[in-house]
Design a protein around this nucleic acid. Sequence first.
DNA 1: CAGTGGTCTAGACCACGTC
DNA 2: ACGTGGTCTAGACCACTGC
Lengths: 245, 245
Amino acid sequence: MAEKPHKYLKIIEYIKKGIDYKGFTDSIPSENQLAEKFGVSRMTARRALVELALEGTVDRIPGKGTFVRKHRHYTSGFFTVRPFRKWAEELNAELRTEVLKAEIGQPPHDVALKLDYQGETILLEMLNYLDGIPVRHSKRYLRADYCAGILWEDLANQSVHEILMGKYKLPLTRISQTMTAVGLPAALTDLFQEAAGYPVFFFQRIAFSEKIPINYVEYTMRGDMAFEDTFSPRLYPQDIAPVDQ
Amino acid sequence: MAEKPHKYLKIIEYIKKGIDYKGFTDSIPSENQLAEKFGVSRMTARRALVELALEGTVDRIPGKGTFVRKHRHYTSGFFTVRPFRKWAEELNAELRTEVLKAEIGQPPHDVALKLDYQGETILLEMLNYLDGIPVRHSKRYLRADYCAGILWEDLANQSVHEILMGKYKLPLTRISQTMTAVGLPAALTDLFQEAAGYPVFFFQRIAFSEKIPINYVEYTMRGDMAFEDTFSPRLYPQDIAPVDQ
DNA sequence: CAGTGGTCTAGACCACGTC
DNA sequence: ACGTGGTCTAGACCACTGC
């Protein structure tokens, strides 16, 4: 009846306990040290460390070593935010995008702060419909010095993300965002055709390209548009990857 | 001047093009076939397929093969849902948990359906406070045949998750959940001390242990509790792919 | 320079699904 | 019986950071 758990799992378990019980507070044994300690090949020890890095438990730095992440992500779940177009496809819904504003000018103070930038910005305001129902409103500020030409693009039929990636070679390397639930503000009641106070999601997102904040967006989205996700806390064999392209 | 990109990246590129140009519409060459075609070892071909599976581009099924995913996960972001206790720690807030109900009985019909189970369930109703403010209400049904003893545990000071994992050896292997934004229902106005209609998050979550659904929870959480996340859309310890050109 | 992680090889055994 | 993916071995070379 002897269990025969995989060796790399035993190593992962060992390291996690070492972290929890403060055995390792910063550095973690190297691949070679683990391989010797557990009597396994280096590839197997490596596998354990790679999985821990994928989980976010650990950081690996070539030439230096493997280190405990201070801000562990004890994720007990997550919700993915997909590009609107892909979402519409999954729901088999007809997507329409209306461009309400597309202009250049000085951004409000708070936006300038968030972008850490004093110059002019492109303001894009749009409304997305699914099957004729207004579902998401977005108000977006883009650094004009990077992509002013976006004003001449066909904004109704391509995502801003795609345009930035494709024509302006601005890959989004980091995203920082918050989400709250709020009541629909009075300014948007006409667009959504709902009463003020109707429950909606409110997102604020800053997107970075190579550490430079390029894009600040505020999304307001109907609260009855459910986010659904299924995932397994085991990562290697399958599932999930916060990747875009 | 010869470029020397990694071999597994070439294989990934090959497969992605095969998918885009409809060369592969369903099945993808096996590890052995790829290894031979590219003149690499099986481990290298495998690496390519594993990464594609991690990305969500492909599904791998032991004993069968590797297949193109129809439902590609074009993630443009995500929000993690952390255990409440960890969240409180990050916010440096004092956590208090009040147990409102802890009893055994027949579950409502819709819950029995979601758990795919006809027997008795444990009903746990709790309210979590952060710094004295009621922030999250939970109503949870657990299969009594797996963990009836949980009624005698100290529910106010341990998470249900921890108890299931620790004492009942029920690791949660999968989670399926939805999130919406709704107005606070009248039944909860007293607990939250807010008017009906106050914007809140509403979560419905089913947690599985080894493919058996054992836990159904409904969370209602104040909408002003922001979810924050920062992430970089690159996954495997290897940076940006030198996109086409 | 020795140590680290990143890639790669050419074998091996296993559990599983298909025929 | 055969092919598939999952795990594992005992070597190897490289690029990088530290001293």
